[in-house]
Amino acid sequence: MDVNGAPSDAEIVARVLAGDTEAFGFVIRRYEAGLLRFATRMLGSRDAAADAVAEGLVRAYRHLASCRDPERLRTWLYRIVTNRCKSHLARRSVGDVPLDEAPPLADPSDGEATLERAEQLALVQRALTGLSPDKREAFVLKHVEGLSYEEMAAITGERIPTLKMRVHRAREALLKVLEEHT
């Protein structure tokens, strides 16, 4: 139990494994938003991301007994969803994001600042989608999800120097694209 009275990840895992299926709702509510954002940035499509996250969390539920360290449930879930994203990417050509899957633009009735922000997001998402999946994954985990290189290594199974190099290359590629458009 944390200071706010919410059960810890380990307590939730123990409850689910003891047969309390409904306790898995805590896991979904706690991690869904972050996982969905990560998958959306990886796949460039909210619908594909929703499928990847739903598949990943159902797999996590079914294999919860094999989560060796429930205190690090978050890392374990990211690893599963990362692999689901890779499976989705493998089924389609990378970087080929159909227009109907591109990030939605804001409604024209929205304010100017909102519109400008939506356009900037669309530009950044397109630049991100142009990166290789490895670099995109490294950039999103580091800068969007705010993970440490140690956590990224646990999720991806890669060595920290490799991940640092990917983040550096991703920054350089993004800067090049973004500076061309400003």
């Binding site: 709702g25 979904i28 954002r37 159902v58």
Partner: peptide, 17 residues
């Protein structure tokens, strides 16, 4: 920061549960 904005849309909780 732009990419870190929440992704809008309905929760997946009912689908997963």
């Amino acid at each position: 920061d732009l990419l870190a904005a929440p992704v809008p849309g309905a929760s997946l909780e009912s689908r997963i549960m």
